[in-house]
Write a protein that binds this DNA or RNA. Structure first.
Lengths: 394, 394
DNA sequence: ATAATATACTCGCGATACGAGGATAATAAT
DNA sequence: ATTATTATCCTCGTATCGCGAGTATATTAT
């Protein structure tokens, strides 16, 4: 009892939290690295790591020989009994779950197709699976973090066109009262991952854009997504960059969404709206090499994409733009159109050194990676660590 | 020497900084308020305030009787010899300077017209004036913070159409090497002020928009403007919400700027581009009550404004939208058009409770207020306070 | 071996904040 | 007026945290 109050206090201060956050962000860090980056004294480092080891948050492992002089510094690695985060990705047709430890290393993974899209069925099954994780890692689950292909508000999904969901609460995934449950848009979380661990890792301000059915993404500033009060931000696809005459399923008109992606390509080819816009877009891009009509459609899409990106760069002034999803394929298929329309849409002063358009380096796992990171953001706080040390067996 | 190292350390910790920041943000705060908000113990509060008084950062003043029971809590007020910030506003035709103390209270003010717009003349004169402040407040000037009507990058003005400036460095306003010099876009800083002390004071995410010649503003999240890597963000006027056929002086096409404000109104009235778009817009709005053509022009502008705001709300998900400059007059002149086009541009899920469109409560001082706040943000940090206690006479 | 280098550990100290107990200044009740 | 109630402030002992100086340790270079 006394010891517990003791422990619960042990982590309130900055140092220990800062060390944990740094180790999470830089999984291969040694103690000496951490000292340098955080400006700690070697004595503090000894003290802090000792306490974090005692609390089963960190462990030390002999580093591989570096070939340099001096006493080698041990690597700070996640403790084998340390906290884990359960990340869930719910997309139109599939679900994925991964369990990750500090640093983001995945210790377990599962995935499957939705048997049906009915919210209660999907969520019931996911709750089962998450609960299995909760049981399999007794006392170790620190947060459940969900990425959804839809618009999110708090822990609710207000709309998810692909899933045909409207106002679905994900509260049932909160296995334990008081455990952090984080819900985010999948594009937002992919952007978070890309900004922290992918193509934007060295940048302070990253604009991430993903084209799937429409356009989504986020602006990530200093590792934090700018996603609004309710988490519904980043709906760049519903900026009115397009023809005001066209109405969008979202309820507005002239949305950028309608100019980019499968629906736009089908329209440009004189086809009816495709049942699966994403698939249709991939087909069109694939045939663009040989089919002039398809090529023109892809080029027009690339121009609409580039123009919007340019405008967003004017508005947000990022270091770098990271592209994902169909945007990558569009960029590969029509690089000239994309780049030139992007530059033409920039304000003049940006043109001497415009933010680079880069492609994702994380691929299809970025949503889950982002969800894991957001989960650990919630765990690696003074309060979160208090909860952990309270939960820990003495 | 020893005493100085002593003092310099005295403020490194969170408590004192947190108290100062809270007092700055809430000028009428009493000690008891601060204790409650920051969760300090009464002992810590005594200790911290005593040290801050000794360092001439804070002073205490008897509160006016509240009529409530209990021992009255003294107000924490800026120390009469405490730090001041010099805020400078450079607009197209005028300059303004104000000297403010902790909490934002203005202790001195000056303004005038530019004799010429030549950068060296304008800056030479401002440097003189700022230097006068530096002399008049010996050892007390903590930062110089500038608001400019132009696009800013670091401490450079990359373009300011109204001033006809291109790539002008403001470094000459750094009176003393090492003293913080902060340069920001005037719309960004006005938004900061509005978000912290104006119409957005209670909100976490504030979208501030100002229409002058074009559209500017910022998104302010948790009191911090989202202004990009170089501070050039917030150029919402150069999002391509408009007709792609029209080219903008900024170098891009279809900018929102061209659909809102004096240029747009003149075009809608079949006039050539006005020399002073802002003045022309005010005239058109003034005559809208009696002149149907003017009314139609204002209404079209209001629709373009509302549509863009809706798109930005989709993308940024703010708690509230604050409007300033011409936008206020447009809103008053054509409230129906603005509101309905705003709502029509929102994604459906926003429509049940859309973020309110509110008008500025700070008026024309918001740029300077924002600059003051940004200056104190630089002063009220551990490093800034170290510098202060080092500068202070022992 | 011995030197050089980088890092880790030990330990005493100063800075910070907490919290319990007492003092103080206002209003409310008698 | 006097006493009670309430909210706050002050004093002081204690615990935590991180620093820094000195010492120990593990590696590479000569």
């Amino acid at each position: 009892m006394q010891t517990n109050t003791h422990q619960a206090r042990v982590l309130r201060r900055q140092g220990a939290v800062a060390v944990l956050r740094h180790v999470h962000a830089h999984p291969a860090a040694t103690r000496a690295d951490v000292i340098r980056v955080l400006g700690l004294s070697s004595g503090s480092a000894t003290d802090i790591t000792a306490r974090l080891k005692r609390l089963r948050l960190l462990d030390e492992a002999g580093s591989p020989p570096t070939g340099e002089r001096g006493r080698p510094s041990p690597m700070l690695v996640p403790h084998p009994d340390g906290p884990v985060v359960c990340a869930v990705d719910i997309s139109h047709e599939r679900w994925r779950i991964s369990v990750a430890e500090l640093g983001g290393g995945v210790v377990e993974q599962a995935s499957g197709r939705h048997a049906t899209r009915r919210p209660d069925a999907v969520l019931g099954h996911l709750r089962e699976t998450v609960n299995g994780v909760y049981q399999r890692y007794p006392g170790r689950l620190g947060a459940v973090s969900v990425a959804v292909a839809g618009t999110v508000r708090g822990t609710d999904v207000v709309q998810a066109a692909g899933l045909r969901w409207r106002n679905v609460s994900l509260e049932s995934l909160r296995i334990q009262p008081g455990m952090p449950l984080l819900v985010g848009n999948d594009a937002t979380l992919a952007g978070l991952a890309e900004a922290r661990r992918g193509a934007g890792a060295r940048a302070r301000v990253v604009l991430h854009l993903i084209v799937a059915v429409g356009v989504g993404g986020t602006l990530v500033v200093d590792g934090t997504p700018v996603d609004g009060t309710t988490g519904a931000g980043g709906e760049f696809g519903h900026l009115p960059f397009g023809d005001p005459g066209r109405s969008c399923p979202c309820g507005a008109r002239g949305c950028w969404d309608l100019e980019v992606g499968g629906r736009a390509m089908a329209r440009l080819l004189g086809e009816p709206p495709p049942r699966n816009p994403r698939t249709r877009a991939e087909q069109v891009i694939a045939t663009a090499a040989v089919d002039p009509a398809a090529r023109l459609a892809v080029q027009a899409t690339a121009r609409a994409l580039g123009r919007g990106i340019g405008g967003l760069v004017n508005a947000t002034d990022p270091d770098v733009v990271t592209l994902s999803g169909l945007a990558v394929e569009i960029m590969q298929s029509a690089p000239g159109e994309l780049e030139s329309s992007y530059r033409a849409a920039l304000m003049r002063f940006h043109r001497s050194s415009p933010p680079a358009l880069t492609t994702t380096t994380l691929g299809s796992h970025s949503q889950l990676t982002g969800a894991v990171d957001r989960g650990f953001d919630a765990v690696l706080t003074p309060d979160g660590l208090d909860a952990w040390s309270g939960r820990a067996v003495p």
